[in-house]
């Protein structure tokens, strides 16, 4: 069964290609999006890390409190604070949300954003720090010794390059609560190595040239650690009743940035007819995504599933409308097994 997540528009949202023209914002709006995802059968929402958007932990806390089924993925960078604090906040979120919190650790951050935060750890060292971050966070989560409500010291010690803990550990405070499922991403050798050793789900971009090869390489690297890592795909989507309607939508958006654009030119950015390279120009974070009829898009999602992809991070703007579309027309085509009534009520 494929899990479908949806990227929350933490900056703003709207129906235009240019995000500066988006009118919907704030927490009333974000909760409308979360409600849409919860009611439409989406499996989870991603509270994205966006330096210009609402802060992801605050978004995630509200989303968990106001949903029952959706998983909530909080995206953040390892430089945001200490791994102990990330684990501590996460434990509260696991308690209040019945263990529905996941992490998406953003390691390959924007250099300008790093500069603002005074983060001087660059290049491959960022992956080394991320590995240490996850080691410490998992270590304190399962470490024994700190009595709930009081303090007697614990058994987890860590003396690393970036982080230190002495006599740490959540002890029974964390008992029965799962550590968040860790999502990672990237295609560099360091990124693959990090996921192989520490990740639970590795998210690939849909513009990855040879996805099957990369999925295999990751599996092989993980096997060396005696682990398996699930694979996912980040995938903007414009799906409509028929193909023409979908491309008309793309054209309408594209003409905001290039009034002379033609449907033919745009379709040339999708050599196989469905995987369109240009979403980043029309308000999305990712470059490549799917355009087509519900059937076309669902078939492609099925291809990805057969290639070993079990998590798809969808996005669409405006999110409320696109989530309803996906829930009503797309997800049950892409993943009928989990979305067809069984038993007496069928």
């Amino acid at each position: 069964m494929t899990g479908f997540l949806w990227e929350l528009p933490t900056r703003r949202d709207g129906r235009r290609a240019d995000p500066t023209l988006w009118r919907r914002g704030g927490f009333d709006h974000l909760h409308q999006v979360v409600d849409a995802a919860e009611l439409s059968g989406v499996d989870g929402v991603v509270a994205t890390y966006d330096p210009d958007g609402e802060e992801s932990w605050i978004v995630a806390g509200g989303a968990l409190r106001h949903t029952r089924h959706c998983r909530v993925v909080v995206e953040f960078t390892p430089s945001f604070g200490t791994p102990v604090y990330a684990a501590k906040m996460s434990l509260t979120l696991q308690r209040l949300g019945a263990d529905r919190l996941d992490w998406l650790l953003k390691v390959d951050t924007d250099p300008e954003d790093d500069r603002r935060r005074g983060d001087r750890v660059g290049g491959a060292a960022r992956y080394e720090r991320a590995a240490e971050f996850l080691t410490v966070a998992r270590g304190v989560w399962s470490g024994r010794g700190a009595a709930p409500g009081g303090f007697d010291g614990g058994e987890f010690d860590h003396h690393g390059r970036y982080f230190d803990v002495v006599a740490g550990g959540f002890d029974e405070a964390a008992d029965g609560h799962a550590f968040p499922v860790v999502h990672l991403s990237g295609t560099s050798p360091e990124a693959i190595a990090l996921s192989a050793a520490h990740g639970d789900v590795h998210l690939f971009s849909a513009s990855t040239p040879d996805l099957t090869a990369d999925v295999r390489a990751l599996a092989a690297a993980a096997a060396q650690h005696g682990r398996t890592v699930r694979t996912g795909l980040v995938l903007p989507v414009i799906a409509r009743e028929d193909e023409h309607e979908a491309w008309a939508r793309v054209l309408r958006l594209w003409r905001e940035i290039d009034p002379s654009a033609t449907e033919r030119e745009l379709r040339s950015r999708a050599r196989d007819g469905v995987l369109f390279h240009g979403f980043d120009r029309i308000g999305h974070r990712a470059r490549a995504g799917l355009v087509g009829s519900y059937d076309q898009v669902a078939r492609r999602l099925g291809d990805y599933t057969r290639a070993g992809i079990d998590t798809v991070v969808l996005s669409g703007h405006p999110a409320i409308e696109e989530i309803h579309r996906a829930g009503e027309h797309l997800l049950h085509l892409a993943d009928p097994a989990g979305r067809t009534l069984r038993g007496a009520r069928a």
């Binding site: 932990w57 605050i58 995630a60 806390g61 509200g62 968990l64 409190r65 906040m89 509260t92 209040l96």
Partner: peptide, 9 residues
């Protein structure tokens, strides 16, 4: 922080 975010609304 987590509790406040959850109870904000």
């Amino acid at each position: 922080w987590a509790l406040s975010a959850a109870l904000a609304r």
